[in-house]
């Protein structure tokens, strides 16, 4: 019994120590002073690598999810004679929930794992150590641009996802199932509030971006420098980030829309 408690205590201490180390790495990367200030060219390069290269998966997923929402929504709403409200249903589902959550999950799988693997490989091949020994802080040079690129890219990707999803819903609802185009778009416009729905969705996205990118860069920076270490760290990035997104989503939804 005592041994069991000891193991639980050790595991808790280890997790706390990881959290502390992750916090220190983030603080040094984000708030540490650099001689050259902000490395704009590195940031732009990373926004391209992390954000622009994720566009295809975001657009395709957004389109199909919007189409599925249109199809499923229509089959339910038509039973109540309310199929004209399809635009409202598609738009609210996407702006409040599916947009931020699915984009963040896809981002964790596509860009988060790539960030972890890239930083991890730099550690395995001693590139991070070599930067340190050149008098260059790898936290400022490698971690910070990637972190900010994730924080900038994910909310924009989420907006694109929602927009394409609405078009997907319209494609199925209006072009295929024959709902009146005017009522589809007018219902959507009338029911979606900019502050309550769009802004809250964006706030969710920004929080997911901070968490997912933090997990990804920390896992890469702190991994055991072996090929197996990289494999484990990339897996951990996707698993931890996905769980964090879903857990945080419930909490944020409860605060934003649940009246807590």
């Amino acid at each position: 019994m005592l041994g069991y408690l000891q193991r639980i205590g050790l595991a808790a201490l280890s997790q706390l120590s990881n959290l502390g180390r992750a916090g220190l790495i983030l603080a040094q990367a984000v708030f540490g002073r650099s001689r050259a200030g902000i490395h704009w060219h590195l940031l732009i390069h990373q926004v391209y690598a992390v954000g622009v290269l994720s566009l295809s998966i975001i657009i395709v997923s957004g389109l199909f999810i919007g189409m599925v929402l249109g199809l499923q929504g229509y089959t339910i709403l038509v039973n109540y004679g309310s199929e004209q409200a399809l635009g409202q249903m598609v738009a609210l589902s996407l702006t409040r929930e599916l947009g931020p959550v699915v984009t963040a999950l896809l981002f964790a799988g596509r860009a988060g794992s790539a960030l972890t693997a890239e930083i991890g490989l730099m550690k395995v091949t001693e590139q991070l150590a070599s930067l340190e020994m050149m008098g260059i802080d790898p936290l400022r040079r490698v971690v910070a641009p990637r972190f900010w690129a994730g924080v900038i890219s994910l909310p924009i990707l989420s907006l694109i996802f929602v927009s394409v999803g609405c078009l997907g819903g319209a494609l199925v609802g209006v072009s295929w199932l024959g709902i009146d185009s005017g009522s589809f778009w007018a219902n959507m416009q009338a029911s979606v509030s900019f502050y309550d729905d769009v802004v809250n969705g964006m706030i969710k996205s920004v929080i997911f971006a901070l968490v997912v990118t933090w997990i990804a860069v920390y896992q890469g920076f702190d991994l055991v420098p072996t090929s197996e270490g990289i494999a484990r760290a990339t897996t951990r990035t996707v698993v931890y980030a996905s769980l964090a997104i879903l857990g945080l989503d419930f909490f944020l939804t409860a605060v934003m829309f649940g009246g807590i």
Partner: peptide
Amino acid sequence: FELRKRMGVLFQSGALF
């Protein structure tokens, strides 16, 4: 970091970017 600018290191793997 200032002191390290006065040192050069050749790593076993080369550690080229």
